[in-house]
Amino acid sequence: MSDTQQIEDRGGPAQPLLIVKGLVKHFPIGSVFTGKQVVRAVDGLDFTIDKRETLGIVGESGCGKSTASRLIMSLIAPTEGEIVFDGDLVGAAGGISLAEYRRQVQMVFQDSYSSLNPRLTIEESIAYGPKVHGTPHREAGERARDLLQAVGLAPRQYARRFPHELSGGQRQRVNIARALALRPRLIILDEPVSALDKSVEAQVLNLLLDLKEQFGLTYLFISHDLNVVEHVADRVLVMYLGKIAELGPVDDIFGRAGHPYTRALLASRPSMDPTRRRTQPPLVGDPPNPINPPSGCRFRTRCALAREICAEREPGLYEIGAGHQAACHATQADSGYGDSRRLAA
């Protein structure tokens, strides 16, 4: 494909592409009977994404992954917190405008069917974004066909088809092409392969890796499938109940996990390799209610290592290796964890 990405790299390579600061989203719920309550879907996220890296976000259902992605996509307004895109504060005077930010950040959704308008042809769906941003119809159509080629769908065969005539994998390729159509720099992939069968999943993942090279993209890859994240991510962020449990390079997370939650997640996945099997019990039960999270450490109710200190004080994000942080008292000698009596967990 000759149509290469023109990146207006403003901050230089050392400037993170995305900085998320204190991102909070509380959904108000409740009625006159129950009083006002809030669901703490995302409760204080701080992280950065470097240029051309893939940050994987993993966590159980309901941990706030999707809310986080929609916040970063600015589809919903945060309760608190700010987003800095390549050094520019999003939506602020002197920063980057919301419209421009939306052009530079695009999203691929999990459900490949509901993310395509059933009444538009594949080409129309892909060309819609550029047309909205003022690209002439013809040029937008050409770009759509180029992108179809880039995602491995022959334009002559597919451009004029409708979504229901395509398979799930083909539709997800179209969604990827649609996300690329605005020449974004950051793509949020919200469980992009979770609905696909394994052979198609591998093809789409490899396509994503190829496109990343080809267009110099940065990915925020959200998934609950640890194997997939291990395959695609450079760094991994483990979320639990709206907060960061652990954040670090992919090899550290998968090899030297510091947080008991991460270790439990890793232990819960079936391994083909006997030497990698772990002795720790997998997680039991469901995450606590985000309306009323536990005091102190949020994971303590399901944690095998929980002690008194964990209920009293919320752990910070402690540095446990180079660029590797974990929110667990047990990783710290001076946290007051060492001499406390064990809680009946």
Partner: peptide, 24 residues
């Protein structure tokens, strides 16, 4: 999701209604 995706492209309300809502 396709209505969300349209909003994510930065499309205005009119365009979203005419292209994505009305036909469906």
């Amino acid at each position: 999701d396709y209505a969300e995706a349209a909003r994510a492209t930065g499309a205005g309300a009119r365009s979203i209604v005419v292209v994505h809502i009305l036909p469906n």
